[in-house]
Design a protein around this nucleic acid. Structure first.
Length: 211
DNA sequence: GAATAGATTGTCT
DNA sequence: GACAATCTATTCT
């Protein structure tokens, strides 16, 4: 009731790949003590445990860290990685189904000054929010929001404008996942300059050194 | 532009 | 003790 167009529980209580695709173009809003930040989601990935080897819930793995993934839809699953970055996910599907959507990049819309201060990057540079760790830093998202209800007033999505073209591509940074790494469960707005990478990452192992 | 190294810590084996 | 759904600076071409 706090915002027109706020997405309800039903949006998240659907198959994870569909939610990931439908996220593109929606508006992410975070209201914090320091101010409100908002941005248009331009890139997201689906993680479909327990069968998806790339998911933290692969093989039925259930720990304190990934507990939110197993909870009801429409909540936030945040985790800390590489010793310095937070990532934010939208939990999807019914309780007990450990699926989630990783938000990878947004186009900044509101709270630009706050984002610049948090990131130390000027608003015109894509580096402000074009990566999962970057957007969390810009929006001030961290463990304090673990399990946050996305149907509440602190962190949520609202209706936005669907892009002209959504591209599907392999997910990033999960080369260890074997065949699952090839699934095209990364979605992004083909026309946005705020996407982290427009296609698959350069694969180190596959790129032979030319003398 | 592309490739590489280093940062840095919570979590789990 | 190893590793991770990353980022940045630096180096090389």
């Amino acid at each position: 009731m706090s915002r027109p167009g706020k997405l309800g529980r039903a949006f998240y209580d659907r198959p994870v790949v569909a939610v990931a695709r439908d996220c593109i173009g929606k508006i992410l809003v975070h209201r914090s003590a320091r101010g409100t930040t908002a941005g248009r989601v331009v890139e997201a990935e689906a993680y479909r445990g327990p069968t998806d080897r790339a998911a933290h819930s692969f093989g039925g793995r259930r720990t304190a860290r990934n507990a939110a993934m197993w909870g009801p839809p429409g909540h936030a699953y945040l985790f800390f990685i590489y010793g310095m970055h937070w990532h934010v996910n939208l939990v999807t599907g019914p309780q007990g189904v450990p699926h989630a959507v990783l938000l990878r990049a947004v186009e900044p819309l509101r709270g630009l000054e706050l984002m610049e201060r948090r990131r130390g990057v000027p608003r015109e540079r894509p580096a402000l929010t074009n990566g999962p760790g970057k957007l969390c830093e810009a929006f001030g998202l961290d463990g304090a929001l673990y399990g946050e209800d996305l149907c509440g007033d602190r962190l949520f999505l609202t209706e936005g404008s669907a892009p002209a073209r959504i591209v599907s591509a392999p997910r990033i940074g999960i080369d260890y996942a074997g065949a699952w790494a090839k699934k095209r469960w990364r979605f992004f707005d083909a026309g946005s300059p705020w996407v982290s990478r427009t296609w698959a990452p350069a694969r180190r192992r596959d790129t032979l050194r030319r003398r």
